[in-house]
Design a protein around this nucleic acid. Structure first.
Length: 159
DNA sequence: GCCAACGTTGGC
DNA sequence: GCCAACGTTGGC
């Protein structure tokens, strides 16, 4: 059941592999390689075109939110699951019955002020953000509209 | 590089 | 269906 209402997300990427600068250069990317069912279900069942995204740099020094993106195409089967040469190859997946899906993400803005994880942890506005919770490894996380609006303004430098 | 936390796998 | 073993994530 797809929600008709716009939702907000935090999507993690390792900048050594794919940073916000890479997305800026490429403009759009298919969010391939997600191999976690909860994250897959968000892309498959929840995301709609126009949903807004906080682009998070994980495994980085420092980790934190680097900018904004937007969902630009709805979920389709992740092609890497069929590719034997890919590290994301899934022998159990078939074209008739794909196992993994990806949405397309489009670059929107690089933050003027990168928001570090440390800052998020110390900000009273962000108490409910999942990413600050210990042991939270989910690579795609829902974010409340309030948190999204606050953090985008903070990152863009308008507050 | 370490390791805590979590997800997945597979034997039973 | 339980759970130990293993693999991965990701902060530090």
């Amino acid at each position: 059941m797809k929600s008709q209402q716009k939702q907000y997300w935090l999507m993690k990427s390792e900048p050594d592999v794919f940073s916000i600068d890479t997305l800026k250069k490429d403009v759009t990317t298919w969010w391939e390689g997600v191999r976690n069912y909860q994250a897959r279900n968000f892309m498959m069942k929840e995301m709609i075109v126009g949903d807004e995204v906080l682009f998070y740099h994980s495994n980085a020094t420092p980790p934190g939110i680097a900018g904004l993106a937007v969902i630009s195409e709805a979920a389709k089967p992740d092609p890497t699951q069929f590719d034997k040469k890919s590290e994301y190859y899934d022998p159990k997946a078939t074209k008739e019955k794909p196992n993994w899906f990806c949405t397309q993400v489009k670059y929107k803005k690089t933050f003027k002020h990168f928001i570090t994880l440390e800052k998020l942890k110390n900000d009273k506005h962000c108490e409910n953000l999942l990413v600050i919770k210990k042991g939270q490894r989910l690579s795609i996380q829902p974010v409340s509209e309030k948190d999204f609006q606050y953090l985008s303004q903070l990152g863009l430098g308008s507050i």
